[in-house]
Design a protein around this nucleic acid. Sequence first.
DNA 1: CTGAAAGCGCTAACAG
DNA 2: CTGTTAGCGCTTTCAG
Lengths: 356, 356
Amino acid sequence: MQPPLGRITLKKIAEEAGVDVSTVSRALAGLNGVHKDTRDRVLEVARKFRYRPNLLARGLVKGHSQTIGLLVSDIRNPYFAEVARGAEDAAFHAAHDLVLCNSDLNQTKQMRYIRSLLDKNVTGLIMHSVGTLSAAEREELENCGVRIVLLDRQAKSQPFSTVSADNHQGGFIAAQHLIELGHRNIAHLNGPRHHTTFADRMRGFVDAVDSSGEKISTVMMDSDPTIPDGYAMTKKLLAEKPEVTAIVAGNDAIALGAMRAAAEFGVSIPDDLSVIGFDNIEVSDLIHPALTTIHQPKYEMGQAAVEILLKVSRTEMTRVPEHRLFGVTLIERKSCKPLEVRKARPVAASEEVYTS
Amino acid sequence: MQPPLGRITLKKIAEEAGVDVSTVSRALAGLNGVHKDTRDRVLEVARKFRYRPNLLARGLVKGHSQTIGLLVSDIRNPYFAEVARGAEDAAFHAAHDLVLCNSDLNQTKQMRYIRSLLDKNVTGLIMHSVGTLSAAEREELENCGVRIVLLDRQAKSQPFSTVSADNHQGGFIAAQHLIELGHRNIAHLNGPRHHTTFADRMRGFVDAVDSSGEKISTVMMDSDPTIPDGYAMTKKLLAEKPEVTAIVAGNDAIALGAMRAAAEFGVSIPDDLSVIGFDNIEVSDLIHPALTTIHQPKYEMGQAAVEILLKVSRTEMTRVPEHRLFGVTLIERKSCKPLEVRKARPVAASEEVYTS
DNA sequence: CTGAAAGCGCTAACAG
DNA sequence: CTGTTAGCGCTTTCAG
């Protein structure tokens, strides 16, 4: 075997096959206009030397680098891990790499990431953007010559493609479920309301309340969509609003925090308090009581995002943005309970309902 | 404002500043040998035009691309999400990008990823490698001219740097804890034993058993380190080995699966069965009963991996691999219980122990 | 201190 | 069908 000192380049293959580099390039690219014999010889040599193209060089001339940037707030959130996995699988399938960026819901950090990705000529960007983009930022993104897919946003007015779950519908279903269960004092513990994802869920919640025909008291709070913040909001809620019998959480993390706070306060779920989450992350089915929640197809959403990205990037001229809205479903588990039942059978009921 | 048709390149800045591109390059790189006035003018122009270097071009000439590849088995495992976050933060801090690869513990897929990363001239690779590398693969990796840090492996014999938790010690502590609690029939439900991580944990387990001076019966099983497989192993265990009173799980996912299976069999944890996990992922403290487990500093390990990678890559010639071993600690929660207590107070004890 | 020139590895017209 | 010629945008000798 030849000692592969330095990398094998096109030139090496060209010399070895006795042709010009451009011919090698064509042959390897599978373009027509290369004699069969020549092609076979080139391919043979390339294989023998285990030739692998330098993607930086190719990217430089082609103008992009077979790379997709994925911006999420925090990969430790199982929701994003699932989305990222879907995206990565789709990217791998299309021979693209996925670069992971954690923005922490921080606008400045996010823009820094984006610029750095643009400097690398990424093929496209999938971003779970924070808040509303400023006019300047939006323009910067529009003109950066890179395909962008917004995740978890339905801003159809924007010139970008979007992939999201039906957050409004999810918020609606969640509230409706609790209302049907007889709850009339419901709290909505949400993520940051300036984020469209959470704003939509909240609107769904409000619409369900307004259209229920029932007289319902609500208390609305919002904070970061994390376990600690869900915990903090719930502690405050339990102390200040004892009349509340049910919580619609902006996501499962908040719901988990809520359950934790409830446990500490000696408030039993679902006997004293019903809780419904959003996302259906894996753990929601593992905790006790199992969390009733709104399921959204996270893996598929990640997949869809890169598919849309690559589709439009291939046709190139298809400037018309695509919007994909995924349906959500109610997953009934053990954390919600009819209000009536509790009053009728103050204690004994728990045995029956807890049984898993 | 000038319409930035096409990207701003060095050439543009050079023209605008009335100097040669090479001078601009030097000025921007902060090299000495540029007149202060010239430098200031160049910097001014560059700033005015928001010049940003094309990293592909730079990478092409420099030979690497300010990118780090991170190979994990599955980012959906919270353990890896945490490691990835630590790695990403450190990479961002050092102006590098992190590309995420999910190998699914599949050797072929892993090698495909590695090759694709090498084609992009990554600065280095952090890999949570599957099984033992074949001689050919190891050689390929050694000669690829790229820094490699192995995660979760202590193979000091290998020419690569490593970062890992003290898996042997963890396995030892886990078994020891159960033994001290009086258990004499202990099962080890482990991940794939051909993976050094799990092999080390198992050896720790065995060493604790052997050095305990007690007569202890063990049953060893291994499978994939996932919730479903933990569930399956436990079902089998419960059916075939009713004498077992405690389980040491290879990781928290397996432990979670075990708890699920136990619940279905009507086996109470920790009353009928003690379970101890490994990793201390976030959920382990959220489930019921809270999981006693071995903590390893995941975030810090991710961070350390890229720090080591970049350190050696900067000095370049430092061929001596670095090995970093992180200590582990026992986190006592509610899933383990003394064997004696159970016998003494068959039922009442549970109330006291469950209280959180 | 600065410009000219060469080249990283590859692709893409343009001639033959 | 294939070789020649030009770059992509940047860094890096090498002169001057």
